[in-house]
């Protein structure tokens, strides 16, 4: 489909003999947020980890099928470059504990290289502004990132992901460990970010999916059950299995 930033075709993923993702084909349009929901162990985190080739870094993990970014096969490209283009934010904020706030955001830029000091400064400030953290940290950029609250650390991780100017942003339960205010900030952020890059968010929180995502996909036992515009999926799901899951009448 034209206008799709990411196209997934017949993706399968395994951990050893466990077939975690089974023949999933999906596409992700530009400038939209897509939520992926499903019970624990349904393969949703594995699925998004295949998109930027983090899955294959796990022991005994492998993937088959195609993931196309702007038509180019992700699995034929340099994985480091792919991880720059397809950024990821994890469930728990994983700030670099020995680095300052500034250092955390600049880390990816320095790793990839090719940026002047001025360019790094500019990108760090821009990223902190985009992640709605700038006003809270602008006076203490050289302080340890560990001094920040959990919600601030998560936004710092988002700033770090944004600093390398990704083309797609993956988020794996980005607000599950946060309080309601921090969660709301992250959701506001997703709402703004999706206008810049496609956001693919894995969440257990049904209401969060309903609030932030344009489309929602439901996965079960490694398979895609249904994907639909979020409003349709939560108002009149096509599949009985989806209805059972989202209404909470499901084991």
């Amino acid at each position: 489909m034209s206008g799709d930033k990411v196209v997934v075709e017949h993706l399968n993923a395994w951990y050893g003999k466990t077939h975690a993702v089974q023949d999933i084909s999906l596409s992700f349009p530009d400038k939209q947020a897509t939520a992926i929901i499903g019970p624990s162990g349904c393969g949703k985190s594995t699925f998004i980890r295949c998109l930027n080739r983090i899955h294959e870094t796990q022991p005994k993990a492998r993937a088959e099928g195609k993931v196309l970014l702007d038509g180019d096969d992700v699995y034929q490209a340099d994985p480091t470059e792919i991880r720059r283009k397809i950024g990821m934010v994890f469930q728990r904020p994983n700030v670099f504990p020995t680095m300052s706030i500034y250092g955390n955001v600049a880390a990816g830029l320095k790793l990839h290289g090719g940026y002047s000091r001025d360019e790094i400064d500019t990108l760090v400030i821009e990223s902190l502004k985009k992640s709605a953290l700038w006003d809270e940290v602008k006076e203490k950029l050289d302080q340890s990132a560990l001094q920040l609250s959990g919600g601030q650390q998560q936004r710092l991780c988002i700033a770090r992901a944004l600093a390398v100017q990704p083309e797609v942003l993956l988020m794996d339960e980005p607000a599950s460990a946060l309080d309601p205010i921090s969660t709301a900030r992250i959701e506001d952020l997703i709402f703004d970010l999706k206008n810049q890059v496609p956001v693919i968010i894995v969440t257990h929180n049904m209401q969060q999916a309903a609030r932030v995502a344009d489309r929602t996909a439901f996965l079960y036992l490694g398979k895609l059950v249904e994907i639909a515009p979020t409003r349709d999926l939560f108002e009149r799901p096509a599949e009985k299995l989806t209805e059972s899951y989202i209404t909470g009448r499901f084991g």
Partner: peptide, 9 residues
């Protein structure tokens, strides 16, 4: 309860 689907309808 934040109902959805048939419950919400």
């Amino acid at each position: 309860h934040a109902p959805v689907a048939k419950d919400l309808r």
